[in-house]
Amino acid sequence: RVEGSEEDGEAPVPVTALTTLFSYGLLFAFGHFRDFFRRILDAGKSSNLKGYAPICLGYEDFYTRRLYLRIQDCFGRPIASAPDAWFDVVERHSNDGNKTLQRTTKTSKCLNLGSYNYLGFAAADEYCTPRVIESLKKYSASTCSARVDGGNTKLHTELEELVARFVGKPAAILFGMGYVTNSAIIPILIGKGGLIVSDSLNHISIVNGARGSGATVRVFQHNNPAHLEDVLREQIAGGQPRTHRPWKKIIVIVEGIYSMEGELCNLPEIMAVCKKYKAYTYLDEAHSIGAVGKTGRGVCELLGVDPADVDIMMGTFTKSFGSCGGYIAASKEIIHHLKHACPAHIYATSMSPPAVQQVISAIKVVLGEDGSNRGISGRI
């Protein structure tokens, strides 16, 4: 019997792929067909935007008009409750073919399948919520300032120390957004004359950070240590483009859990390759920190990798901890450099104090420091 056959109760993958592509192709063809006749009907009409370049170009504009607008009522629905396992979704209606949507006073109870709320901390929690409310009363909703000016409270310092202890690194630094943590940090760590070797399925924040760094970027096959070694060997042998000088720095960037695939990183094998070729390692644990490992400390704990061997450990607070923002944990020297050189730390508004308190409380529950055994027993 062939695994994945109809005898197993599953439709063959090629059939699913073909029917999906056929449906998409049908919509694509009808959309272009309607656009063709629209251009004929509007040929004699003058445009007030003559001479202006269109804001949306080509396929982006076509996709929005002919595909997304037809189904947008299925997505981005406003919610009227906490983002728990079940939540209330506001019902909407349209009078113009989904170009605009109007909210109604009706709500529907729905199963939440579109949330990062892995451990349930984004809803009311017996330990976290009272402390967050207390911090809101004490510190207000925002610092309205960057960390280096008036945006640094003792909560921010406490969370940095707690994160460093939690992930097993000497120091840490906070940022107000997970996406910015990658896109703003990578250009500070490496620049022209450096080499970034990135997993082919890394998140767009990593991709944009690598592109903005000015370093040379090479991609290795997803989760393939053997191909990573081939890329490193080839690049080290060839050196920098044109000059063939040795690379100033080499950083290999991977994710702990790849968000769209749900696959764990082959971290032990990748670390062995990086050590062999003296490459720095950058580990994005946005989707793994707090969620995997015996005590929630991420893929290093799960796969038996010493955090001291990972040079840069990145993570976010938006998934397991029910808050916002991100962090970088590394050596004291690296964190000191980031605090003095990273624009996202120097110029951006610091994390909201209640959001910081939420993360502190959530981590303490995971560690069992809340006075209960919820985190240790996994009954969060």
Results as ranks from 00 to 15, higher is better:
Thr318Arg: 06
Val90Trp: 02
Ala237His: 15
Gly371Glu: 05
Gly368Val: 07
Asn98Glu: 08
Thr100Met: 12
Arg77Asn: 15
Pro130Cys: 00
Val310His: 02
Ala164Cys: 04
Asp230Gln: 14
Asp42Tyr: 05
Val310Asn: 02
Arg77Gly: 07
Leu67Gly: 07
Val167Gly: 04
Tyr347Gly: 00
Tyr52His: 10
Ala355Phe: 00
Ser142Ala: 12
Gly150Pro: 03
Ser47Gln: 07
Ala53Glu: 15
Leu113His: 03
Asp370Met: 05
Ala164Thr: 05
Gly114Met: 01
Ser259Asp: 12
Tyr277Asn: 10
Leu69Glu: 11
Phe28Pro: 02
Thr318Asp: 15
Gly304Pro: 12
Phe37Thr: 15
Lys106Glu: 15
Leu119Cys: 03
Pro268Leu: 00
Gly214Arg: 08
Ile270Cys: 13
Ile188Gly: 01
Ala172Trp: 03
Thr16Ile: 15
Pro54Thr: 03
Leu189Thr: 04
Gly76Leu: 10
Gly371Lys: 03
Ala184His: 11
Ile335Ala: 03
Tyr127Leu: 00
Leu26Asn: 12
Thr318Asn: 12
Ala53Gln: 13
Arg211Val: 06
Asp88Gln: 12
Lys109Asn: 11
Lys276Gly: 08
Gly325His: 01
Ile133Arg: 04
Thr16Val: 15
His340Cys: 01
Tyr179Trp: 12
Cys144Gly: 06
Phe62His: 15
Asn223Leu: 12
Leu283Gln: 07
Cys128Ile: 08
Ile186Trp: 08
Ile186Met: 09
Cys342Pro: 01
Val365Leu: 02
Ser200Glu: 14
Glu7Ser: 10
Ile206Thr: 15
Gly368Tyr: 05
Glu158Ile: 00
Val310Thr: 05
Val197Ser: 06
Ser259His: 11
Pro14Ile: 05
His227Val: 12
Arg65Thr: 09
Thr316Cys: 14
Cys274Ser: 10
Lys332Ser: 10
Val180Phe: 09
Gly114Cys: 03
Arg38Trp: 09
Glu263Cys: 07
Lys294Ala: 10
Val231Leu: 08
Leu41Tyr: 05
Ala123Gly: 11
Pro246Ser: 08
Gly178Glu: 15
Met177Phe: 13
Gly315Ser: 10
His93Glu: 13
Thr129Val: 02
Ser108Thr: 15
Val292Cys: 10
His222Trp: 08
Glu160Cys: 13
His156Pro: 06
Gly58Leu: 12
Val359His: 03
His287Thr: 12
Gly325Trp: 01
Val207Glu: 14
Leu367Ala: 10
Asp284Cys: 08
Glu7Asp: 09
Thr153Cys: 04
Leu69His: 09
Tyr116Cys: 05
